Structures are given as C-alpha cells and as structure tokens.
Computed example of a mutant assay.
Amino acid sequence: MAYLKQKMSYFHTIMSRDINSLSREEITVKIEKKLIQTKNFMSLHTLFSPKSIAIIGASTRAGSVGNDVAKNLVKSDFRGEVYLVNPKGGELLGKTCYPSIGAISESVDLAIIIVPASVVPAVLREAGEKMVRAAVIISAGFKETGEAGHALEAEIVAIAQEYNIELLGPNCLGFIRPQAFLNASFASTLPVDGPIAFFSQSGALTSAFLDLSRGKLGFSTFASIGNKALINERTLLAHFGEDESTRVIGFYTEGLEKAGEIITLGHKLLAKGKPVIALKSGTTEA
C-alpha cells in the first residue's frame, strides 16, 4: 500500500507541472527512475549488500577518517567496485579520484559521505539524482550539536525521503559485513564472520566492543547507527529478524522511541528462535 501511495504521489507531481515542457521520453524516464527508487525503499538490502560504493570525501591525509575509510575498502577483499570522490581530483591508493559522484559514469549503490555537515545536503541530493539508493553519513555536526544542527538533519531526512535513500547515520562510524569482506567504516578491526548482528548508537562503545570481541565472537553485521535520522533500532531489528545469516541480535541504545513496539518485536523474534539482547544506558538512584 505504501508503495502504491508513493507511485500515485509521484504521478500527481508529474501531472501537476507544465507537462508541455517535457517530451514523452522525458516523462517516461522520470517515472521509471522514481519507480526503481521506490521499489525497495528501506529494505536495507542495498545498504548492506552493495555491488558498488562511492566514498565521498576520500582524503589523501593520513590518519583522517576519509583516508581510513578509503584504505579499508580499497585494500580489502571486497568484490564490488569502489570509487573515490574528492573535489580536488588526483589519485589515491592507486585509484582515480572523481571530482563529484555525478562524474562517475557507472552506477553506484552506496554512498559513504565524509564531508563537512554544511555540505552534506548538497552531496546527498546529488547522490539521489544519480539514483544512489543507500547512504552512510559518517559526518558529525547535526542534531547532536543543537538547533542549527537539528535543522540540518531534518533537511537530509527530507532529501533521503524524496529520493528513497536508505540512510544510516549521520554521526556514525559506518558498518561492517565480514562475510562480504566489507568494512564500510573507519574502524581498523575486521571481525570474523559469524551469526551475531550487533548495532550501537554509541560510536565509542562500538569501537570498544569490536576490540573486546576480537577473536571471540563472529558477526554477520556490525553497525553504528549514530543519530538514527531514518534507520533506527526497530528498522534494524526487522531487517536482521529476516536475515538468514543472523541467529542472534544485540544492540546498545541511549534512547528509544516507541519502546513498546521494539519490545513486542523482540518477543516475536524470540518466539521464532532468534533472541535479542538489548542494553540501554540510563541512571538510577544512588
């Protein structure tokens, strides 16, 4: 039903414009592009199983987040295509740097965005125009910084919804899929493959847990969710609940919305033989 509503809304938008300004071919292309985008909206398949990735903000500066993420992907055994984007162009890790994602002629499934917060909306919109269907925004500087940052985050949410982009973050470390040798984060540790899906709102806890579990636990997915602008705990529980490579789900959160729904979903998953272990931070009386 939601898919039908999205289609009808888009058709209404097309018809309400001056249709005489568009050729039949242009109208067809616009509608087809929109239908492709809406078909798998928020399935998270493209996010966690991309065939091509663009790192927007790849940096030549050693030790920077943009450099670490680029190295994690370019030097890995990930079998998909990796494109580096830097407005200065040039070369990094033996690969050409494109000045923008729009300059990449091939299709891109996932955009990893590591640019100043003020630039993120324009970059995300350009990714949407290129029909990129998933994005990880590592950049900080959004609602965690105050009123101005909150408005900026609302803007990227609106853009993601307009273009039907699966959006993880902002203000996160990214994610890791060991089975696919996919380290779409700036974490230096690649855990072994296993049956546990783990996600955390806290980047610091994510890093600490990666270090503590090294060589002891195996993961199907390891993700940092940051500000949870679109993808939140319930979204991920529903996704990993259907993921055949996941048998146990664990997560850490600092604040829950609609906690009752999440608890109900957790009980349903447990009844199916997939336990959920949750840890929420808080305070108690001394």
Rank of each mutant, 00 (worst) to 15 (best):
G266E: 00
S16L: 10
L270K: 15
A286M: 09
A111H: 09
I55R: 02
T60N: 14
F251E: 02
E26C: 03
L124M: 09
L256M: 12
E91L: 07
L256G: 05
K51N: 15
A154G: 12
K75D: 10
A2P: 07
G174N: 04
Y252V: 14
S100L: 07
A111T: 08
V157H: 10
R17D: 03
T96W: 07
A70Q: 03
E126K: 15
G215E: 09
A223N: 06
I55V: 13
P191F: 10
L22H: 13
K88C: 04
A238V: 09
A134M: 04
E126M: 15
A278S: 14
F251V: 02
I14L: 15
A238Q: 11
D109P: 01
V119F: 04
V192A: 07
S188P: 00
Y10N: 02
K88Q: 12
L205G: 07
V29R: 15
P99W: 08
Y252L: 15
K88V: 09
E25H: 10
G250I: 01
S185H: 04
L4W: 13
S76T: 09
L205P: 00
G146H: 02
I138D: 01
Q201R: 00
N232R: 15
E166L: 05
C97G: 02
R214E: 14
K274D: 01
A259L: 05
A122V: 03
L93E: 03
S23Y: 14
L270C: 11
A122I: 02
D68K: 15
I36C: 13
E25D: 11
V115E: 07
P116F: 08
T206Y: 07
G203F: 01
K30H: 05
I225Y: 02
I53C: 04
I114P: 03
K5F: 05
S59D: 02
N20T: 12
P116K: 11
E26H: 03
E254T: 11
G63M: 03
K7A: 06
E91M: 13
E162Q: 11
F209K: 12
F142M: 08
L265K: 05
F142P: 02
R17G: 05
D211K: 14
S202Y: 01
L4A: 15
G57M: 09
K33L: 12
S185N: 03
L173F: 13
M8V: 09
I19H: 07
R79W: 10
A180W: 06
H12F: 10
S49C: 08
T284C: 11
N72R: 06
L110T: 00
S59Y: 04
T246H: 10
K258G: 05
N86I: 02
R247N: 12
L84C: 05
P50R: 05
K228V: 05
L190V: 13
K95F: 06
A62F: 06
A62D: 08
E147W: 06
A2I: 13
A271G: 04
T60Y: 06
R247E: 12
T206G: 12
E257V: 13
S64T: 15
E261Q: 14
G102Y: 09
L4F: 13
L84N: 01
I31K: 08
L190Y: 08
Q161K: 13
F11T: 08
G89S: 06
V119T: 11
G226V: 08
I36G: 13
E129R: 10
S107I: 08
I14N: 04
Y252D: 11
S16P: 00
F175T: 02
H239F: 13
L35D: 09
G94K: 00
L124H: 06
R17C: 03
